[in-house]
Amino acid sequence: MEQEAIQELIYAYSEKMSGKKKLKEKDIIKKISADAELDKDVVKKALRAMIDVGKLMYSYGGGASSVEIPTEEYLREKGMIK
């Protein structure tokens, strides 16, 4: 599977879970690699590439970290949107 297609799966899952459960990187990797029968490292690489360009971002609350769809504020601050 092309990285872009994997990234679409990741994004769709993150969007679906948004507000329901704080996803850790591992939750996403586990879910997508199982659903699409992919190697975990391949999913991790695709996920990391999304974080590097601000399609997803690391979040933090109560001492623990998670991965989320970026807020507009974050994207504006990183110069991703005007």
Partner: peptide, 17 residues
Amino acid sequence: KHGGIVGVLGYGGGVIG
């Protein structure tokens, strides 16, 4: 207030909001 979501692009730690 509690720490918030801030950081540098690509990293998920090292900055505490």
